[in-house]
């Protein structure tokens, strides 16, 4: 197996060690893989991205991109990677086309030379190519930033929370674009706080407070959820949640959209007992359900699990 990105026991602290942003993280990302770093704000995702893009030095550990060391070979790595930071970082007062031209020039290339790689995405914003980047809508800014990150034909693409604050329609579109890029053989490392996006990656790492809790395919992570999970609903969901938490045989009760997800203390199905105990609720249902990545994340978080 060829790995395109590797992290070995990477640690990063800030403020003279007072803040431990990344704690002994090891990861391997295969060539051509669409890999997701899934976790909330403050989990350490951005620090990992900045270390891999040679913008930050790790305190400890080693990291490689394209077989190059992030510390000693930083100049070469910068030529080969594309980076879309979490914060919109293009020149707001340059036009769409000027921004793209600027980034192409920085990397000693031209829009024409690499047009094929950005074409699918760029045609969507090309009608606005004379508009200042600052005047674009959120979805268009995101597309332009992706084009600028790719115009030099990088072999690895780092996308830091590209869909944060973006509505769910634009998010779906963005993931479709990523799939197409992946088909061109580009290795993509993408981070997101939206757990529902995890299933769109080939493999994911669940990260929390600087530590990786699990690394696997989304399917395997879901399959490893350790106990039977049930979904419960009634016509009074807020009250139902409180009532569920008073039942001695219920271990955990969490809201999940239109249902609450619960687990029982034992592996036995207590749903008949539950329906009896909560019969003052109308339209009460309790059915087995499949875990989502978010259920797994919460489980790992609450049990303080760390990957090797």
């Amino acid at each position: 197996m060829t790995y395109d990105v590797t992290l070995q026991n990477i640690t990063k602290t800030y403020e003279k060690g007072a803040i431990k942003a990344v704690k002994n993280v090891s990861l391997q990302i295969e060539k051509g893989e669409l890999f997701g770093l899934i976790g909330p704000d403050g989990a350490g995702k951005t620090s990992i991205f900045r270390i891999l893009t040679t913008l930050l030095l790790p305190d400890e550990g080693m990291a490689n991109v394209n077989g190059l060391d992030v510390v000693s070979d930083y100049k070469e790595i910068r030529k080969r990677v594309g980076y879309m930071p979490g914060k919109f970082s293009l020149y707001q007062d340059l036009s769409v086309e000027e921004n793209l031209k600027f980034f192409a020039t920085l990397f000693d290339t031209t829009i024409e030379e690499n047009y094929d790689i950005i074409k699918d995405i760029y045609v969507q914003i090309e009608p606005f190519k004379t508009r200042a980047a600052g005047q674009l809508s959120g979805g268009m800014k995101q597309k332009l930033a992706l084009c600028c990150a790719m115009i030099h034909r990088p072999s690895v693409l780092f996308l830091d929370e590209p869909t944060t604050g973006v509505d769910s329609v634009s998010r779906k579109e963005f993931w479709n674009m990523l799939k197409k890029l992946k088909a061109q053989g580009i290795t993509i490392l993408v981070s997101t706080p939206y757990m529902d996006e995890a299933t769109l990656c080939e493999r994911i790492a669940l990260i929390q407070e600087g530590e990786i809790m699990s690394v696997d395919t989304p399917q395997n992570i879901i399959d490893q959820y350790p106990m039977p999970l049930y979904k419960v609903k009634s016509d009074k969901m807020s009250l139902l949640l409180k009532d569920l938490r008073t039942l001695s045989y219920v271990t955990s009760a969490m809201s999940f959209g239109e249902f609450h997800h619960i687990t029982f203390n034992s592996k036995t199905d207590e749903s008949a007992q539950l329906l009896e105990d909560l019969k003052h609720h109308e339209k009460l249902e309790c059915l087995p359900t499949r875990a989502t990545v978010e259920d797994c994340f919460i489980h790992l978080m609450q049990n303080n699990v760390h990957a090797e």
Binding site: P40, D41, A43, E161, G165, P193, M195, S255, M301
Partner: peptide
């Protein structure tokens, strides 16, 4: 958008 980027457990405590 009070819960953007917040971890899944805290997001529920927020609710």
């Amino acid at each position: 958008e009070p819960t953007g980027g917040v971890d899944p457990v805290t997001r529920r405590q927020f609710w």
